[in-house]
Design a protein around this nucleic acid. Structure first.
Length: 461
RNA sequence: GUGCCUAUGGUGUAAUGGCUAGCACGGUUCCCUGUGGAGGAAUCAGCGAGGGUUCGAAUCCCUCUAGGCACCCCA
């Protein structure tokens, strides 16, 4: 691989991106909200390495799964260890559970994490090669309450972030026995219909039959209508479990929909699986309509129209997803550890928030802007800066500038309530000019008294 | 990995194959080291890369690269 030009060198690798200051404020706000809620529901934070042993995922996700075969960032260390960038969060959690003997902790163990995960695939809407996930896990608890609890936490996070409407799609995959039964029937059914399904589905029939159910090809959708449903094959205990989950969801007043075709390909999944979609927001739709009506036609360029079309036709993207994984632990260790968990897709949530013009943080304008002219004044105002900051004032400054106009201009742009001006004269006689940026009125105050003076002013306003 | 579409300053955009690639926002400096929100001036900065067609290419063609969307897949 040759670097053909410098521009290419100055670009993030494919599917990777910088999160710039403005966007990072969104990220932080989302993470903070998620963290607050997770904490208040009893989850404890954990951080695991970005790198794990390659075999860990091979073992748990299946050597032949797409993820393991094609989508992992894998490399060998100088010592010859085969490592990978973590492609997901649940397996490392379970690894940590075993490594640190968490079965001796009070059960269930409830953890949350936030960080980057890596998947080497072609990027598209809401899918990056490095992506952020906030996840919660409940390990060591079999009851359907924990499934609903997890869903509730995610729903609450989305709600408090400002998503007015969302829907939880939920389904049960049964356990090893009843799912096996179901899968057999499903395969048998599709074998009979093999001539009416798409080519991909013919492949799925052999490799991953559960996936037959979520093919979008119209032909296959038709075939699916009469396909056997998991619910009819679920054993008594799985049914009871699912019923319990739904009852709790009712209690939590979470809008859910049973999605009989929602499946997971991996073997370690069992029983509950869910995905959460934000509904098209009424406000956003209205705004779009307004946009359209103000455009008296023909003014938008073709590419713009194309872009809008793309957006409108875009399939809804899951903001959160997860499920129960009662069989994961058995594959990894010598102990059965039931578990349930899921993750929020941070990239997608930030995208959706911006799309809906929801701003989950307050941009704080500084209360005070320090303006200084001349070397001596700079020293004085640095001292003042420290005092103000310690007293928890929002302070801004621009010590690299000397021009008074420029500094006031900046103070104005930042939206500071007051400008404190120290020049040669003030530096000498120990005063400071307090300028009200709203009214333009100013008064001269002794530097020693300026703190109290400002406190009073802020109180009154 | 496959298919379709796209690529012009930092951002958003304009230019029947033909003048020095235009405009808006932005950055910096100045008008103006002692008073911001308004002006004015200067300045920064671009045709993704390579090749071809042509007297002449931002524009047409090919390759590459990157991006978007979808497929695959989604732990």
């Amino acid at each position: 691989m040759k670097i053909k030009n410098k521009k290419e060198l100055l670009q993030t690798p494919k599917g990777m991106r910088d999160i710039l200051p403005h966007d990072l404020l969104y990220w932080k706000a989302v993470e903070t909200k998620a963290e607050d809620i997770a904490r208040s529901y009893g989850f404890k934070p954990i951080r695991t390495p970005h790198v794990e042993k390659a075999e860990l995922f091979g073992l748990t996700l299946g050597e032949t799964s797409d993820i393991v075969e094609k989508q992992m960032y894998a490399f060998k260390t100088r010592g010859g260890d085969a490592l990978v960038l973590r492609p997901e969060g649940t397996v490392p959690m379970m690894r940590a559970y075993f490594e640190h003997g968490m079965h001796t902790w009070p059960q269930p163990v409830m953890l949350y994490y936030s960080g980057s995960f890596f998947r080497h695939e072609n990027p598209q809407r809401g899918r990056w090669r490095e992506f952020g996930q906030f996840g919660v896990e409940i390990m060591g608890e079999e009851s359907g309450l924990s499934d609903a609890y997890i869903i509730h936490v995610f729903a609450l996070i989305l709600q408090e972030l400002g998503f007015k409407k969302f829907t939880v799609h939920v389904n049960t995959l049964g356990d090893k026995e009843c799912r096996g039964e179901f899968r057999k029937e499903l395969v048998a059914y599709y074998r009979r219909k093999v001539n009416s399904i798409c080519r991909d589905c013919k492949r799925r029939l052999k490799e991953n039959p559960l996936r037959l159910l979520d093919c979008k090809n119209p032909m296959c959708v038709e075939v699916r209508a009469d396909a056997p449903q998991m619910m009819s094959y679920a054993c008594l205990s799985c049914r009871a479990h699912f019923k319990l989950v739904l009852e709790f969801l009712d209690d939590f007043e979470i809008p859910y929909k049973i999605a009989p075709h929602l499946v997971r390909g991996l073997d370690y999944y069992s029983r509950t699986v869910f995905e959460i979609f934000a509904d098209a927001d009424a406000d956003t739709k209205k705004e779009k309509a307004d946009d359209a009506s103000t455009e008296t036609g023909g003014e938008k360029t073709e590419p713009q129209k194309e872009k809008e079309k793309e957006k409108e036709n875009a399939a809804p993207i899951a903001l959160a997803a997860g499920g129960r994984y009662d069989y994961l632990a058995e594959v990894m260790g010598d102990r059965k550890v039931p578990g349930v968990g899921g993750a929020l897709g941070l990239d997608r949530i930030v995208d959706e928030l911006k799309e809906r013009k929801i701003v989950p943080f307050k941009e704080k304008a500084p209360a005070v802007f320090l303006v200084q002219i001349g070397a001596q004044a700079k020293r004085k105002s640095l001292v003042l800066f420290e005092q103000l900051r310690k007293s928890r004032f929002g302070v801004a400054q621009s010590f690299s500038r000397d021009n008074l106009r420029t500094q006031l201009d900046l103070a104005n742009k930042l939206g500071a309530a007051y400008a404190l001006i120290i020049g040669q004269k003030e530096a000498l006689d120990g005063t400071v000019i307090v300028r009200d940026m709203g009214s333009g009125t100013q008064e001269s105050v002794y530097q020693k008294k300026v703190l109290d003076h400002l406190k009073k002013k802020m109180k009154n306003s």
